[in-house]
Amino acid sequence: VTTYKLVINGKTLKGETTTKAVDAETAEKAFKQYANDNGVDGVWTYDDATKTFTVTE
């Protein structure tokens, strides 16, 4: 299990959150659900070296 980070650069929501997941794909699903629940819809990137997803509106 690895800790992944999400950086949110939204129009109305900015911040960070983390999740523990077995792989990046599982973390991405959780983060996309989180973003959707919070009304954030943007461009996604992922940096494997830092295990960090970024979504920018």
Rank of each mutant, 00 (worst) to 15 (best):
G10M: 15
G10D: 04
K20H: 15
K5C: 04
T52N: 02
V55T: 03
E25A: 10
F31C: 02
V7E: 04
D48V: 09
D41W: 07
T54E: 06
V43F: 13
G42P: 01
T19I: 09
E25R: 14
N9G: 03
T2V: 10
T54N: 05
F31P: 00
Y34K: 03
I8P: 01
T26L: 04
G10S: 15
E57Y: 06
A24T: 13
K11Y: 06
D47A: 05
G15E: 15
W44C: 02
V22C: 04
K14C: 06
Y34A: 03
T54F: 06
F53N: 00
N36C: 05
A21K: 03
T3D: 11
D23N: 10
K29E: 09
K14E: 07
A30N: 12
K29V: 12
K51N: 11
T26K: 08
D48Y: 11
K32D: 02
E57K: 03
V7S: 04
E16Q: 06
A35R: 01
I8M: 14
A30S: 11
T45Q: 09
V1G: 13
T18C: 06
T45Y: 10
T17D: 04
W44D: 00
T17W: 15
N9Y: 11
T12Q: 13
A30I: 10
D47E: 15
V55A: 03
T18S: 13
K29M: 10
N9C: 05
V22T: 14
A49C: 05
E28C: 05
W44V: 02
V1L: 14
E57I: 05
V55F: 04
W44Y: 02
K5S: 07
D37I: 08
T12C: 08
T2S: 10
E57Q: 05
G15C: 07
Y34C: 03
K11S: 14
K14H: 14
T45G: 11
A21M: 03
F53W: 10
D47G: 02
D37M: 10
E16L: 03
K32N: 05
N38S: 10
V22I: 11
N9D: 14
Y4N: 00
A24M: 05
D41N: 13
V43D: 08
K32M: 13
A21L: 03
T12R: 04
K11V: 15
G15Y: 15
G42H: 02
E57S: 04
A49Y: 12
D41I: 09
A30M: 15
G42S: 01
T50M: 09
T18M: 15
A35V: 12
D47F: 05
T50P: 02
Y46P: 00
A35E: 01
Q33N: 14
L6N: 01
K29H: 12
Y4C: 01
A21Q: 07
E57P: 04
T26P: 02
D48W: 08
T56M: 08
E25V: 13
D48P: 09
N36S: 12
K11T: 14
K51P: 00
T17E: 10
T50A: 09
N38V: 07
Y46K: 01
A24F: 13
T45I: 08
W44F: 05
V40Q: 03
E28F: 15
L13Y: 15
T45W: 10
L13W: 11
G15H: 15
V7Q: 08
N38C: 05
K32I: 12
T3I: 09
V55W: 02
Y34S: 03
Y4E: 00
G15A: 14
A21V: 07
K51S: 07
A24G: 06
D48N: 15
A49Q: 11
E28N: 10
V7C: 04
G39N: 15
G15S: 10
K29G: 06
G15N: 14
K5H: 11
T52F: 03
T56V: 09
D37F: 07
W44G: 00
L13P: 03
T2E: 08
E25Q: 12
T3V: 08
N36D: 12
T54V: 12
V55C: 05
V1K: 10
E16G: 03
A35F: 03
T50L: 12
V40Y: 04
